[in-house]
């Protein structure tokens, strides 16, 4: 299978959907490549730096039969458009009693780890999850990035696509042709029996790397990637934890009210999954500080492989029943 970068996969998704459906347009302050050449300036719109109007325009045009892709570029900039995200996009369909659909896709980069400091290193997807009314995708591989973004563009609701900055240049296999990944379906990236590691975005890779290291110590780790945060594929997550009895959730957002917290709650509030638990659930998240600039500080703020490994050891050691022994 051919290998392409995460960014190239996302660009392919947009181009293919624009080719497939003339109603798809894209709005942003800049674009990778030269999409104007193929699609023309009326469908590829360079905009002023006006996040509020851009966000609301996507919504308004979507309500009138267009399928806009609005590119905020960095999630940071979406905060300038809070009214349009929080008061309008997430509520418009429901509060009007479902009279119209609003097929708009909002795209943004997210996450830290590349020296962009406090404002441009945020991972605020749980803020959007909390709103009720937005679908949210958070891919970890080029193939998922392409397949999820294509599904997001075809979805008839506002969807936010969070695209992890640290993954942009990383490459991976992507199938040829019309590759779609449905929204709301998690992916078990590695099967195991001792511990479930749920990673998000960049931390799926890190979790897989840790799982490799731990396998050499006889610890069998299952790595699950939710891929879509809304709707969340809770069945796949619970099934995995019912098998392993132990859960560590890894993400680079701070733990308070995070996606990791939500996943932990979805696990423990289910009777069958709770019964299967052999140890307390652990979250491995960023420290509750703005992400600092200097490399040693930034590394200290974000989760590391060592942190993930330590959490896995902890849930094995802290087993409240069924003491764990290496296979």
């Amino acid at each position: 299978m051919r290998e392409i970068s995460f960014q190239t996969a996302l660009d392919e998704a947009v181009a293919e959907e624009m080719r497939r459906d003339p109603r798809v347009i894209t709005l942003g302050t800049d674009f990778t490549g030269n999409p104007v050449k193929e699609f023309g300036a009326s469908r590829v719109r360079f905009t002023p730096i006006s996040e509020a109007v851009l966000t609301g325009m996507g919504l308004g045009a979507a309500g009138c039969g267009v399928r806009p892709i609005v590119n905020w570029r960095m999630v940071t900039f979406s905060f300038v458009a809070m009214d349009q995200v929080v008061n309008q996009a997430s509520k418009i369909r429901y509060m009007f009693g479902g009279q119209a659909d609003f097929p708009v896709t909002y795209r943004c980069s997210t996450g830290g780890g590349i020296g962009l400091a406090a404002q441009h290193s945020q991972s605020p997807y749980s803020m959007w999850m909390h709103l009720a009314g937005l679908k949210i995708v958070l891919p970890s591989t080029p193939a998922d990035a392409k397949g999820l973004l294509k599904s997001a563009i075809r979805d008839n609701n506002p969807v936010v696509s969070f695209e992890c900055s640290r993954l942009a240049t990383l490459t991976g296999p992507v199938p040829d042709g019309d590759h779609l990944v449905p929204l709301g379906v998690a992916d078990v990236k590695r099967t195991g029996t001792d511990v479930t590691l749920v990673g998000l975005a960049y931390y799926v890779r890190e979790s897989l790397a840790v799982a490799d290291e731990l396998a050499r110590e006889g610890i069998s780790v299952e790595v699950v990637d939710p891929r879509t945060l809304v709707p969340m594929d809770v069945e796949t997550l619970r099934e995995s934890v019912q098998k392993t009895g132990r859960l560590v959730v890894v993400d680079e957002a701070p733990a308070t009210c995070s996606a990791a917290s939500e996943i932990a709650a979805l696990i423990v509030e289910d009777r069958d999954t709770f019964r299967a638990l052999k140890a307390p659930v652990r979250r491995v998240c960023a420290m509750p500080v703005p992400v600092p600039y200097s490399p040693p500080l930034e590394q200290a703020a974000l989760p590391s492989r060592l942190d993930i490994k330590a959490a896995v050891y902890d849930v094995l050691k802290e087993s409240v029943r069924g003491e764990w022994r290496p296979a």
Binding site: V53, M57, L59, G60, A62, Q88
Partner: peptide
Amino acid sequence: IVGGGLPIACGAALAAQL
């Protein structure tokens, strides 16, 4: 929301322009 409808109106106008 005071002012909240203006961006949405611009989107409807963009749809009409297209």
